[in-house]
């Protein structure tokens, strides 16, 4: 587990200003579910004085993301918009007595949310164009040039590893390695020219051996001329896995159904599958029944413990798969209220 400072732990276990702020007049949102962290910063700014009177946050993320958000709200409350915009991710990290290097991106997320909130207050529209600040560099975590340049300058970053720690850029598939190196070299060169960085510290493009981007996962092989696995007339039907007996229930489809069943025959086949799977539902204290069947839609009713149970969806998925295997075509199983 990470070595968090007492301050980080305190702000994680007892977050300040968590929750929604109903009368917020400046809101900044960064991150996304797919990225693994996201922050919505809500500020209530006094229109006369531009003082931030209240600040609240909602955060999806790990312990240090929540702690950084909490710290951010504490830092901005009482400051004017002008003062607040001068805050950097370093201020957030220092407020928490430091963050593990791999977690610095949490503090950067705080700063980015603040920038967005200040922009919103000023009426600068960032939302029309997601990538107003230059090209998108890292597609895995949606990091653009502007964010990387800010993080590099604020934190004097001089290696790709550090850039990844602070922005997450390059932490996924690594296919952006080359543009990332170019950008870091450019920004470092500019920093040297401005006297912010010593020439020998600057990152030079091509200095580090660039590993090849990870290969795409070998999903779906190009199948050479192989004979069909089973005598399966319906090509879309997955061949049944008749290798070891499944624990429960007994496999339904011994072989893919021949195509050309009548709807009535199909209905009988479906009813049989449901009968065979009923013990699974009953074991959970519920029951399942076939209500109707038409085309690709199988309507079932769930009763007892199954209705409204989260697990039911999963079990229905299993049912759907079995029916699809039996019919040799795809169907959708939907739970309905019994009429």
């Amino acid at each position: 587990m990470w070595e968090y400072t007492e301050k980080v732990k305190d702000h994680f276990f007892n977050p300040r200003n968590a929750g929604a702020l109903a009368d917020a007049n400046a809101v900044g949102e960064v991150g996304s579910l797919s990225c693994g962290d996201a922050l919505k910063l809500m500020l209530k700014v006094n229109p006369e004085t531009e003082v931030i009177e209240e600040a609240k946050f909602q955060t999806f993320g790990c312990g240090s993301a929540i702690a950084s958000s909490s710290a951010l709200t504490e830092l901005v409350i009482g400051k004017t918009i002008d003062e607040a915009r001068r805050l950097t991710n370093q201020d957030i990290a220092e407020f928490l007595d430091g963050l593990p290097p791999e977690k610095m991106h949490c503090s950067v997320m705080g700063q980015e949310a603040l920038t967005a909130a200040v922009a919103a207050w000023r009426g600068e529209d960032l939302e029309d164009d997601d990538h107003e600040e230059g090209a998108l560099i890292c597609k895995c975590f949606a990091v653009d040039e502007g964010m990387i340049e800010r993080a590099v300058r604020t934190n004097k970053l001089t290696s790709i590893e550090m850039v990844t720690h602070y922005t997450k850029a390059g932490g996924g598939c690594n296919s952006c390695r080359e543009p990332l190196e170019e950008l870091l070299a450019d920004v470092n060169a500019a920093m040297v020219a401005e006297g912010m960085l010593k020439p020998e510290e600057a990152f030079v493009f091509g200095a580090a051996p660039a590993p090849k981007p990870k290969k795409k996962k070998a999903q779906g092989f190009v199948i050479p001329d192989m004979p069909p696995v089973a005598a399966a007339p319906a090509p879309q039907a997955p061949a049944p896995i008749a290798i070891t007996p499944l624990a429960a229930p007994a496999p339904v489809a011994e072989a893919p159904a021949p195509a050309g069943r009548t709807p009535a025959q199909e209905a009988i086949a479906i009813a049989r599958v449901i009968e065979e799977l009923r013990p699974v539902f009953k074991a959970d204290g519920g029951d399942v029944e076939l209500v109707d069947f038409e085309g690709g839609l199988v309507l079932v009713s769930l009763t007892g413990a199954c209705s409204g149970c989260q697990l039911a969806n999963q079990t229905l998925g299993g049912l759907q798969k079995r029916i699809a295997e039996t019919l040799g075509r795809s169907v959708r199983v939907m739970p309905v209220a019994k009429t």
Partner: peptide, 11 residues
């Protein structure tokens, strides 16, 4: 019921 809409400025 449903997650709130979340509309980040950067992402």
């Amino acid at each position: 019921a449903a997650p709130q809409t979340f509309d980040p400025a950067y992402a």
